[in-house]
């Protein structure tokens, strides 16, 4: 009898074992690819997001945010920030960039800033007020994640003669 070669059963078992391993590997690769796509935003723009939030919030705390107003223009939105030391700063929002003292550009291709920020101004009680600014980061063809938005908050003490709320 010829002892060379392999039997068909050996072949089938080998192929099925290899295909199971390959299927699992493929699944792992797809998952890793999804994480990589998500982290593409995280790595290139998350640093900008963290820097923007930190810089603005530090100014809120150091100079005490008093009030703000929004100007909606053709291709951009401006948020004028008024501080208690009578200084004024501006957040300028364009689709692919945000400016607060420095300009930060969105590097992720599919991401863009929403030109309609959500502003909340309300009294917490008779002494304190809350101001929140939410600048959404929208993604083309993908579900927006609130976690990627630029959310700025400030809790301030009302001056005696002023009401900082609507």
């Amino acid at each position: 009898m010829n002892k060379k070669g392999i039997t068909i059963i050996e072949l089938l078992v080998s192929i099925s074992l290899v295909s199971i391993v390959l299927l699992l590997l493929l699944r792992v690769m797809f998952s890793l690819n999804n994480i990589n796509n998500a982290s593409n935003y995280a790595s290139s723009d998350e640093i900008s997001r963290t820097t923007i939030i930190k810089n603005i919030e530090n100014d809120f705390l150091n100079f005490k945010l008093k009030d703000l107003e929004i100007n909606k223009l053709a291709n951009k939105t401006e948020i004028n920030l008024f501080y208690e030391n009578n200084t004024e700063e501006k957040i300028i929002i364009k689709e692919k960039e945000l400016t607060y003292k420095d300009t930060y550009s969105l590097e992720t291709n599919k991401a863009y800033y929403d030109l309609e920020p959500v502003i909340i101004k309300q009294a917490l009680d008779e002494d304190y007020y809350l101001i929140m600014i939410k600048i959404k980061v929208l993604m083309e063809d993908e579900k927006d994640a609130e976690k990627d938005d630029i959310v700025l908050t400030y809790v301030g003490l009302k001056n005696n003669n002023e009401d900082n709320t609507n």
């Binding site: 792992v28 998952s31 890793l32 994480i35 998500a38 982290s39 995280a42 997001r49 963290t50 939030i53 930190k54 919030e57 917490l124 304190y128 976690k147 938005d149 630029i150 959310v151 700025l152 908050t153 400030y154 809790v155």
Partner: peptide, 30 residues
């Protein structure tokens, strides 16, 4: 190896986001 990668990614995503840290600071102060 893969589980470790996913866990670290989850930690970076859910824990101590900068916006939430400032919110937590204001809640503490209040």
């Amino acid at each position: 190896t893969f589980s470790g990668l996913v866990l670290n990614a989850k930690k970076n995503y859910l824990y101590d986001d900068v916006a939430n840290i400032y919110k937590t600071y204001y809640v503490k102060e209040y």
